[in-house]
Design a protein around this nucleic acid. Structure first.
Lengths: 130, 130
DNA sequence: CAAGATTGACGCTTCAATCTTA
DNA sequence: TAAGATTGAAGCGTCAATCTTG
């Protein structure tokens, strides 16, 4: 079972890499930023939501900044903190990547299961994660 | 759902690392070797069964050989090929690691689900992997 | 001193190129 | 020439140590 989930994640990651040159972690970060009002989030919060250590997030944001997808800004209220802000280019790339990703998820996962199966899976999985 | 499976795998990996200084990939390799008659397998076959590129397997076996857990032997029938053979120490470590791993799987996964849920999960997951 | 974030160094993984034998 | 396996170099992810601000 873990084998299958690893393979699934691997394929999904390969597609993002191939079409948009994004790692799964990059994509996760873009998802969270795009989801926020103002498209911005504190580094520590962003790290937490994507289940990464802060040091890892620093590298991830480094890469996104270099490609002009994200800006780093000092936090206005607390000068120790930094915020990551999605640029227009970043948002545009995210929307394209999201299409790729959703298509892949549908093809590899959703289309292979009935609605009933999906419902059961969700229930069972909730028990594991709790 | 992928989040949960990633977390699960991460915790399982951390336990193997902490108690036996093994990566998941190391453990996967030991499982396959221990499972074979003669505790030996050709490199290419071992790579395939644990879903790793051959180059990755080379590194993995390098580490295991250095720790005396595995021996590398030239294949008797085809001198191009190499075989990995589990040593007594390797088998002993594997048995201990297996206990750790099984305990963790039970604790984090099996104990959280009813038999009925497990059965359903197996059915659903088979559809995804197919 | 504590909190937020970054950096240096290391380990794991993988690709492309290479070496060896068939 | 092809098949089996290994190696060099590069990227990703992480820990411990460090820098900066509160």
């Amino acid at each position: 079972m873990l084998r299958t989930s690893v393979q699934l994640r691997r394929v999904l990651g390969d597609e993002l890499r191939e079409h948009h040159d994004l790692s799964m972690a990059d994509y996760d970060a873009l998802v969270q930023l795009a989801d926020q009002p103002g498209h911005r989030l504190r580094m520590a919060e962003l790290a937490e939501t994507i289940l990464q250590p802060r040091s890892s997030l620093t590298r991830i944001v480094d890469g996104l900044v270099q490609r002009g997808l994200v800006l780093r800004e000092r936090s206005s209220d607390d000068a120790r903190g930094a915020e990551a802000v999605l640029t227009d280019a970043g948002l545009a790339l995210f929307r394209r990547a999201q299409r790729t990703h959703h298509d892949a998820v549908r093809r590899l996962f959703l289309d292979r299961l009935t609605d009933d199966q999906l419902q059961r899976l969700a229930d069972v999985w909730r028990a594991v994660g709790a």
